[in-house]
């Protein structure tokens, strides 16, 4: 609620363009927090809570990938690998070695960031098709590793025995607590992304998307910047993997395969490329679709494929952005 109070204070001070934006952001965050609180406190149905928790986890994935695809303009077709690395790292450390899950969260983030660095250093020099192929191959290798290194990962039958999260007296066994944990993290991630985008780094990032050669020429170290954002999105993926692992308590390689990477890209294409809220929208839609449509699983691939093709053919700036642009144009015409 601090946000609302803050924005009124600001409003009294002055009303220049920049501050208007700030006020808008605060209101958005306040509304977001209210919605989370209402949904979390008043939803009794555990199934609904579970779905909403999954939406939160997927939003984290979409947020991270959106920074890379939507803002930096770089493709990754193997992002599920970082999701899996987060999940497996915490599973192995806390499940097999009995380390505190919170400590293993740090390790999971560390491992993902390190791998992102090693993989990104040469790959992000590539562009377009080669980056796509490189990340796709990377995702495949990681998935094969999950499957074949069975003495550690449990192989294709999966990993059992992931401990439930606890913090002091609070157990995250209950659906409601976990819901708030996940959405708290999502809120934190949204704030982080927005801060990054509004900063010097974010401007440089968007400038790469608009025109890489000019951004090079004004002195942006584009390769380093892409690498940083790749590492950031990998760390969000790892956090999502951590939350996923301690939520479902059982993980297997299928949850982190190529299809999951494609699903992440689809979320970004639907929602992202416009704003962080777009990522939320994309994640919600793709999480809800299979739940709402009976027998969707059969047609899941066809639907995702069609979404990707149609949106990219007609609205290469992304679905949400595309609609916003159309709306803007219509409004301008009316004026």
């Amino acid at each position: 609620m601090y946000a609302l109070a803050d924005c009124f204070r600001l409003k009294r001070q002055n009303g220049s363009d920049m501050d208007d934006n700030k006020i808008k952001n605060r209101i958005e965050h306040a509304v977001f927090i209210c919605i989370i609180l209402v949904l979390g406190l008043f939803t009794q149905n555990t199934y609904y809570l579970q779905i909403m928790t999954f939406i939160g986890i997927n939003t984290l994935l979409a947020l991270g990938l959106n920074m890379l695809i939507g803002y930096a303009g770089q493709i990754s077709l193997g992002h599920a690998a970082f999701y899996g690395i987060g999940a497996y790292t915490t599973a192995i450390l806390s499940g097999t070695f009995g380390i505190s899950p919170w400590l293993s969260l740090l390790c999971a983030i560390g491992v993902a960031v390190l791998i992102a660095f090693v993989v990104g250093l040469p790959t992000l020099r590539l562009s377009g098709y080669y980056l796509g192929m490189g990340t796709l191959g990377f995702g495949m290798i990681v998935n094969i590793l999950f499957r074949e290194w069975s003495s550690v990962t449990g192989g294709s039958s999966g990993f059992v025995g992931i401990p439930v999260l606890e913090a002091g007296k609070v157990s995250f066994m209950s659906g409601q607590n976990y819901f708030f944990l996940v959405w708290g993290v999502v809120l934190g991630a949204i704030l982080m992304c927005r801060r990054i985008l509004a900063s010097r780094m974010g401007r440089a990032l968007r400038s790469i998307h608009d025109g890489e050669k000019a951004s090079l020429a004004v002195g942006v170290n584009t390769h380093y910047l892409k690498l940083q954002i790749f590492m950031f999105s990998a760390s969000l993926g790892a956090v999502a993997g951590f939350l996923y692992a301690h939520f479902v308590l059982f993980i297997s390689p299928e949850s982190f395969g190529f299809m999951v990477s494609v699903k992440m890209v689809t979320m970004v294409v639907i929602g992202g490329m416009a704003s962080v809220w777009g990522a939320l929208l994309g994640a919600s839609l793709l999480t809800l679709l299979p739940e709402v449509l009976h027998g969707f699983a059969e047609y899941e691939m066809i639907v995702f494929g069609l979404i990707l093709m149609v949106v990219m053919i007609f609205m290469p700036q992304g679905l949400t952005r595309g609609f916003l642009d159309m709306y803007e144009k219509a409004r301008k015409k009316r004026q």
């Binding site: 982080m192 801060r195 990054i196 509004a198 900063s199 010097r200 780094m201 974010g202 401007r203 440089a204 968007r206 400038s207 951004s215 004004v218 002195g219 942006v220 940083q228 950031f232």
Partner: peptide, 19 residues
């Protein structure tokens, strides 16, 4: 923002600064 990007080499806040 274009001009601010032009100032990139004269400013120094990075990822942690932004966060």
């Amino acid at each position: 923002e274009n001009v601010l990007v032009g100032m990139h080499v004269r400013t120094r806040s990075g990822f942690w600064g932004a966060v």
